[in-house]
């Protein structure tokens, strides 16, 4: 049985880690981009960002004062048992979000869309979002928090099969260029592309692809994996770098997630995570042990299953933690 005390304590630590510590995979990717960047303005920006991550860690202060819209992803193994059940779990996650807003401190960003009511704690109607997924076997739960910006860098479009791969590339370029100018998308970033699903799921898949997969992770479908690399290179060939200045570092990595869609359509979404790529993950085991990491390992073979029922394959889980 996993206690609420452990969940709350872990969630508080995750909020702090996400806000302050740049994930290693993104940091390595950005360092590579900074080494390759030859635009003088873009290069200055990347080096300032690298220095900013150090300052944040040394001082234990937030990397970016725009908290974005903090949210939670919960993955529950099938045999996990939580003290108080999902209602208590949600109260703990909301509690940790509110407390760390005043603790770290984080800027309270969440307001009512019409009345602009601000509880100064990043909680309110539908906030923070909590998304769930499940996994066969095991007694653990994985908690991931993501603090992604909330205003720019995301778009959706209904494409059709006739638009083809060329149409996908064109909309991808449209989105990167539109939001890349003046650096509204806070690039260079991990770009997530959602293909298929219904309209809402297309958006969800793209966002999860940007926020819940690490740099250099590839889709298990080899053709999609090749397209990910092609889109990454395409983004970096625009001639635009950090803040929209002349440069070549726009995309640190590109991740594509797919879902089955209507036979007549090919919905697509594009999401830019940001220069601070704030995510932190922990696994709470059934016996109360907690392990922190930065890879959400959200997309598993079970998540991407195509069959009616789950048939465990002989191949080992792509990401065993």
């Amino acid at each position: 049985m996993i206690s609420q005390g452990t969940i709350k304590e872990t969630a508080l630590k995750l909020m702090e880690k996400a806000a302050i510590e740049i994930p290693d995979d993104y940091l390595s990717g950005l360092k590579k981009a900074a080494a390759a960047e030859d635009g003088d303005l873009s290069s200055f920006v990347l080096h300032a960002m690298l220095e900013n991550y150090e300052a944040a860690k040394e001082d234990r202060r937030a990397m970016c004062a725009d908290t974005g819209v903090p949210r939670w992803y919960v993955k529950m193994a099938n045999e996990a048992r939580i003290d108080g059940g999902p209602i208590a779990l949600e109260a703990s996650l909301r509690g940790a979000t509110a407390e760390s807003t005043n603790g770290v401190p984080l800027r309270p960003n969440r307001v009512h869309p019409l009345w602009r009511t601000d509880h100064n704690n990043n909680c309110g109607i539908g906030a923070p979002e909590i998304e769930y997924s499940f996994e066969p076997d095991g007694e653990w739960i994985d908690l991931t928090t993501v603090h992604k910006g909330g205003l720019f860098g995301t778009d959706y479009r209904m494409l059709f099969p006739g638009d083809g791969i060329a149409g996908i590339k064109r909309f991808y370029l449209d989105s990167l260029i539109a939001f890349g100018k003046r650096g509204l998308a806070c690039q260079p970033a991990i770009i997530g592309v959602g293909l298929g699903g219904s309209k809402d799921i297309s958006m969800v898949l793209g966002k999860q692809a940007a926020c819940l997969r690490t740099v250099d992770d590839r889709n298990p479908d080899p053709k999609i994996a090749a397209l990910e690399i092609e889109l990454k290179d395409l983004g970096n060939s625009i001639g635009m770098g950090a803040m929209g200045f002349v440069g070549k570092s726009m995309v640190i990595d590109c991740h594509i997630e797919v879902g089955y869609c209507h036979t007549g359509g090919m919905p697509m979404s594009v999401h830019a995570f940001c220069l601070s790529s704030r995510r932190a993950v922990a696994r709470i085991h059934g016996d109360g042990r907690v392990q922190y990491r930065t890879d959400p390992a959200w997309f598993t073979p079970y998540m991407r299953r195509e069959t009616v029922t789950w048939e465990p394959t002989a191949e080992p889980s792509r990401k065993s933690i």
Binding site: N52, A55, D59, A62, L275
Partner: peptide, 14 residues
């Protein structure tokens, strides 16, 4: 004046 990045929140905090 534009901020850099965006954003170098911790450097500005200092």
């Amino acid at each position: 004046l534009t901020t850099v990045g965006y954003g170098t929140g911790a450097l500005l905090g200092r």
